[in-house]
Structures are given as structure tokens and as C-alpha cells.
Amino acid sequence: MSQTPAPDLFDLSRDHEQVVFCQDAATGLKAVVAIHSTALGPALGGTRFHPYATTDEAVQDALNLSRSMSYKAALAGLDLGGGKAVIIGDPHTLKSEALLRAYGRFVQSLGGRYLTACDVGTYSEDMDHVARECSYVTGRTVAHGGAGDSSVLTAFGVFQGMRASAEVTWGSPTLAGRTVGIAGVGKVGRHLTGLLIEDGASVVVTDVYQPAVERLRTEFPQVTVVESTDRLVATPLDVYAPCALGHALTDEVVAVLSARIVCGAANNQLAHPGVEKSLADRGILYAPDYCVNSGGLIQVADELDGFSFERAHQRASGIFETTRRVFDLAAADGVPPAVAADRLAERRMHEVGRLRGIWLNPSS
């Protein structure tokens, strides 16, 4: 009987510095921590708690997300590298204080190479539990000296990216009078809805989690709700904002999308290499995800210096100019914005990382 060969983890993670598997039988913890790069500083990235179908799927997600965190931190001008952790399981049934504390002990064992925070399926209160066993935790509750909910500035940063995209597309940095479709109205999507309505936009939303939809209806009764993402992308839109899980921009979605702009909070939105060109060919301006969704990273990173919301908010407002820089470079080099963003991030990782390496290792 033939067998499918197991994936070569060294090959899968060849551009990563370290991948760690964590397991605690007593609590049911199974986690993967991926450190992509520490060229600019310790790797900072959230902990995603999700019921992955297979371990391979969880590993691949950790690798993809940690890589994007390196690029996100570099483009945001932070002295941080990129990492990400995933905990395998349903957070609604598996999450417990004991599991989170066991996870904290594993993060502590990495000695500060990886700093954790919140992500899909984890919250500031969870980080307080992790921090009872670990010194390398950000995104904690305000009561424990943290920044609290990082989705506030994530949404603000996406909104700044939308404003920059609107200026390039329509000549004015506002969404007033435009129709914006948001897929996923959990933490970030809900805050983004408020910012858009305040700016004068019409908002159409969808989410697979009905309690999130009902909460949004209560807070913003003027929003329009559709039953699925397929229905949303087929709706006449000016802007499409993927704010749920990754790989939202498939060939099928791009083929039916009416929006002139794609700008959302989800990580790793491009389903495969080449989608960015398909978007450009259809005249759709894509604001690279890790460029516009870096507000949350900026917020939790500010905790490392003693959190100031005003300072973090001011830094996150710079996402507008960063997005414009990406679009300007894309136009100058004749490449899609996703390629231009990569070039800017890679340039900083190479130049600053090289100089940092010389200072840390003067004999090399």
C-alpha cells in the first residue's frame, strides 16, 4: 500500500529561524510557535487559538503568519521581528486557565526570542493568564498595565489605509458616500464599521458567527447584513474589506468582485502568488494586508515602553503615509502594491538588520 510522504518541516520552514512544538497532556495544549526573523529585534506576534483540521494545517498557518509579522513590523518602522503561535483546538471548549498558563511556560522557555499577544480566539484576559507564567507577553488588560484590546488600533490603521486608497482612486481621502463591504465583524470589523459610518460610508457586512452580527445590528442598526461572503463579494461595492481569516482573495472572488479597492484587516489575504496581478489587471487597487493592519502590532508593541494610547494612536496614524509610499513605489516600479510593500519591508530588514548584526557581533 502506497503512503503519502510526510512533509519535510525543514523544507517548509527554510526561511524561518525556529519552529517549536509545545504539548501538555494534562491540559490538552498543542501549540506551534514559529519565529520567522529576529533581524530587527525579538519576534512579536499574537497567539491564534483555532480548531485546525490537521497539525500540518496549523504549522503552515504559523509559518505564513509569522512571515507576515516580520514584514509588518519592518514596514511599520518597529524594532521587532516576526513570530506567531497557534494553539490547536476550539477555544470555546478547550481554553482554560491551566492551558494558558502551560502555554505561558513554553513561551517563557524561549528566553525572549518570541513575545506573544492576542490574535483570533484569544483576548487580553487570556494574556493575563499567560503572563502569570511568562515575562514576554503584550496585549494585556488595562487593569494589568497593558494596552487592552488591540483591535481598536488595528481597525484605525485599516481605516487609514482605506483613506489613502480612496485618495489614490477617487482623489479624496474619505469614504463618504461610498459602499464598503466587510467580511467578518468580530473585534476589528466592529470597530471598523463605526469608523466608516462616522466618515459617511454605507456598510454591508457578513459573518458566520451570528452573535457578532446581532451585536453589530444593535450598535449600528443602519448596516446592511447579507448571509454569506459569496453574496457580499457579488454585491455592488466600492471597497471590499476582508476582516476574517486568511486566503480571502481567491481567483473566484477576484473574478466577481465589483469593488475598486480591497483593504481589510485579515492576514495573508492573497490565496496564492499571482492573485495580486489579477487584482491589478481588473483595475482593483489592493492595499497590502500587513501594511494596513499593523495598528494592532503598533499598539501592543507600545506596551514594551510603558503603554501610552496617545503615542500608539499617533504612530498608527502614520499608516496613511506608509500606504501612500507603497502605492507611489508600485506606480514608479510598475509592480502591484503587494510587491512594492515587500520591497520596502525587505529593504529595511536587510539594511537595518545588517547594521544591527554588526553592532551586536563586532568581530563578525
Rank of each mutant, 00 (worst) to 15 (best):
P211S: 03
V254N: 04
K72V: 14
L9Y: 11
A155V: 04
A74H: 09
M162C: 03
E125W: 01
E214F: 11
W359L: 11
Q299D: 04
M349Y: 13
T229F: 07
A73V: 06
T93G: 15
L99C: 03
V203P: 13
A345C: 05
R324D: 09
Y290G: 03
R178G: 02
V254W: 00
V204G: 01
L78P: 10
E227T: 07
R132V: 01
A241W: 00
R347T: 02
L192F: 04
G81E: 12
T169G: 00
G41P: 10
I197R: 06
D302G: 14
S135L: 08
L355G: 02
G161D: 04
C134V: 05
N293L: 05
G157K: 08
L40S: 05
W359V: 15
Q222P: 11
V254D: 01
L175H: 02
G46I: 08
S258L: 00
T206G: 06
R324C: 13
A340M: 06
A164S: 10
G283Y: 01
E17D: 12
Y209M: 09
V254C: 01
H247V: 01
P221R: 12
G295Y: 04
S317R: 07
V335N: 07
E198L: 06
T206K: 00
L175P: 04
C243L: 10
M349W: 09
S151E: 12
L80E: 14
V253R: 00
L285M: 09
A330N: 06
Y52H: 09
C134H: 08
S66Q: 12
D230S: 01
G295A: 05
V188Q: 08
Y103K: 05
L40T: 13
G194T: 03
A166K: 02
L355H: 08
T4W: 14
A43Q: 11
F220T: 05
S172L: 12
A301C: 03
R178V: 00
L249H: 02
G81W: 14
Q269E: 15
A164H: 13
F159T: 14
R348G: 08
V59N: 02
T174D: 04
H272M: 11
E351V: 10
V86Q: 15
V239I: 11
C22F: 13
A164N: 05
L80I: 11
H16M: 11
A155F: 08
L285H: 15
R48A: 03
H50Q: 09
E133M: 10
P242T: 05
A340S: 11
Y52L: 10
L94G: 08
G296I: 13
L44F: 10
C22S: 14
E57I: 11
A345N: 07
L329C: 02
L110R: 11
P91K: 01
C22V: 02
A43M: 04
C243F: 01
L99M: 14
A183R: 03
S150L: 11
S278K: 09
A58V: 00
K72F: 02
V292W: 10
T229P: 07
F320Y: 15
A74V: 10
P221L: 02
A287L: 05
Y52I: 07
A301R: 09
H129S: 13
R101H: 06
